[in-house]
């Protein structure tokens, strides 16, 4: 089981702050693909991914109980 978090525009697109997913042991790119298939309204363009609060690359493997967060372009400051 993994937890997926959404913020800002993506959270609004989905009307969801987080989802629990049954898959694990898959790369970030594959999870993105599955989410886009499940949620056609979701756009992950230009979006970074964090695993357990650290930025992750597209080929990084997501393990069971990881918390995955999608980080659209930031605009703090």
């Amino acid at each position: 089981m993994i937890t997926v978090l959404f913020f800002a525009k993506q959270q609004e697109q989905l009307g969801l702050e987080k989802v629990e997913r049954s898959e694990s042991k898959l790369p970030v790119s594959e999870l993105k693909q599955k989410l886009i298939e499940d949620y056609p309204e979701l756009s992950l363009a230009n979006t970074m991914t964090a695993i357990n609060e650290e930025y992750a690359e597209e080929d990084q493997i997501i393990n069971d109980r990881d918390v995955v967060a999608f980080i659209p372009p930031v605009s703090g400051g």
Binding site: F7, S75, G76
Partner: peptide, 10 residues
């Protein structure tokens, strides 16, 4: 901050 900190402005 404008590059790496996950904060968003609406």
């Amino acid at each position: 901050i404008k590059e790496i900190v996950p904060i968003w402005k609406k």
